[in-house]
């Protein structure tokens, strides 16, 4: 097994820990407004739609669609070897609810805008980074 690649990790603070630690239980978690149902990202203390402060941590389905992507060829960090796919995925829960992530589990050449993907988590020092992989398993190489 190869070592895990290098990752800069997020600071875990009360406002964001539901997002970064939810993967331990397999959940992609956001704040959601109790009054109007709006999903918040990034987290904030107030609903941007109705200004309610009544917000609850809620799990999304984990499904998403590739909104756009780029194949990164530049070695920005030692031990994070290109090429790898950086993508912005959009969640079906709400139009415009997006995450920047990596597409894993397939070759960079196989990634397309509009492709259905599904969340998968990896544990880095207790931070559960959400990545996304093709929702339909890629056809096994013959």
């Amino acid at each position: 097994m190869s070592e895990k690649p290098f990752r800069v990790l997020p600071a875990i603070v009360p406002e964001t820990e539901h997002f970064w630690l939810g993967g331990a239980e397999g959940e992609l978690r956001f704040l959601r407004c109790d009054d109007c149902g709006w999903w918040l990202h990034p987290p904030a203390p107030i609903c941007p739609q109705c200004l309610s402060r009544s917000l609850s941590v809620t799990a999304a389905s984990g499904d998403a669609v590739v909104h756009t992507f780029t194949v990164n060829w530049q070695p920005w960090y030692p031990n994070l070897d290109p090429p790898y796919v950086i993508a912005i995925v959009e969640l079906p829960e709400q139009e415009g609810l997006r995450l920047t992530t990596n597409i894993v589990g397939c070759e960079p050449d196989d990634v397309r805008i509009g492709m259905p993907v599904r969340v998968t988590f990896e544990d880095y020092d207790g931070v559960w980074l959400p990545f996304f992989e093709p929702a339909e398993p890629a056809k096994a190489a013959s």
Binding site: R7, V8, L9, P10, I12, T68, T70, I86
Partner: peptide
């Protein structure tokens, strides 16, 4: 690297090896 932990906008991009506007603008171009 090392003990550095990302905050603000960077926490949403740096863990994914996307530190550069080249990556962000690349996605817009795509």
């Amino acid at each position: 690297g090392g003990g550095y932990r990302a905050t603000g906008f960077q926490q949403w991009t740096l863990p994914y090896g996307a530190p550069s506007a080249a990556n962000w603008i690349g996605m817009m171009a795509q």
